[in-house]
């Protein structure tokens, strides 16, 4: 299907390229893949391939109150972040896309600024602010901070959905008697819903995987899973983390597959 576009160079002469590319792909995916079988190892030594198989590290994960609580905190925060960031980001993307606002470029830059601002600075700043507001170690504080981290992805994903959407659709709906909100809800949302859902998935995973900000502003009962993992890793390489990592990888794969499937339907 692509051969008509390929250059008149034989595949054989380019074998070096395929070998190099293949090796780089192995480098990219290898580490994540190695973790999965190791998490089923029966020994305390991390071996690959494992000498014996067991579920002991999963039992250690699910059996530990601390890990379980941290997981629950992370899930709660990620769900709430998704619920907050998705409508806020979608509304902002709609306004930016409308062309009504004179400074829409500036607004977009502000809303997506967290993509380029060093996270460490955000973490320290948020901690400093929360210390004054009493929001450190609270779910509210975490959700607010993670919403700001997730917002750029929602805004950009929904904006890219708008780019392939014909705004005349909404105009015609309005000429036919729908007010702006009804036109948006009945005509625009059904057509950009895959972008909105993709944005929501990105928001979820951004919050769930976030470490640096949580390192500063979460603790005690609101310690997130990643924060606890970070602390655990600083001390020693605990095989339980292999089990947790495997769960996180599976989660990423699931969410990504979902986003890909939605993306295909969108196009």
């Amino acid at each position: 299907m692509y051969s008509d576009q390929a250059l008149p160079i034989s595949h054989w002469r380019r074998s070096w390229l395929y070998v190099t590319g293949g090796l780089v792909l192995v480098y990219l995916i290898g580490p994540s893949l190695i973790i999965v079988p190791m998490s089923f190892s029966g020994s305390t030594l991390l071996q690959f391939p494992p000498q014996s198989w067991s579920l002991r590290w999963y039992e250690a994960y699910f059996g530990s109150v601390e890990w379980r609580d941290a997981t629950i905190v992370s899930v709660k925060v990620a769900v709430m972040t998704t619920l907050v960031a998705t409508p806020i980001g979608t509304a902002a993307a709609y306004a930016i896309n409308s062309g009504v606002l004179r400074f829409s470029g500036f607004i977009q830059t502000l809303l997506t600024a967290t993509l380029i601002i060093p996270v460490i600075l955000v973490g320290i700043g948020t901690f400093f602010l929360y210390a004054k507001l009493g929001l450190n170690n609270t779910l509210t504080g975490l959700v607010i901070a993670h919403t700001v981290q997730a917002l750029p992805l929602v805004v950009l994903t929904v904006l890219s959905g708008f780019r392939t959407y014909d705004m005349n659709q909404e105009r015609v709906a309005r000429s036919l008697g729908a007010n702006r909100f009804a036109a948006f809800w009945q005509v625009t949302v059904p057509q950009i819903r895959f972008s909105i859902v993709s944005g929501a998935l990105f928001a979820f995973i951004t919050s769930f995987d976030e470490v640096v900000v949580a390192l500063f502003i979460s603790g005690g009962e609101t310690t997130t899973l990643t924060r606890r993992m970070f602390t655990a890793l600083r001390d020693q390489v605990d095989p339980t983390i292999a089990a947790i990592s495997t769960c996180l990888i599976v989660l990423s794969v699931l969410l990504l597959t979902l986003a890909q499937l939605l993306g295909r339907r969108r196009s």
Partner: peptide, 20 residues
């Protein structure tokens, strides 16, 4: 192969390298 690591937690990938 490129996107999946991109969406896997930095922590998980760092842990993997520690193990390796």
């Amino acid at each position: 192969f490129v996107i999946l690591p991109f969406w896997t937690s930095v922590l998980v990938r760092t842990y993997a390298w520690l193990v390796i």
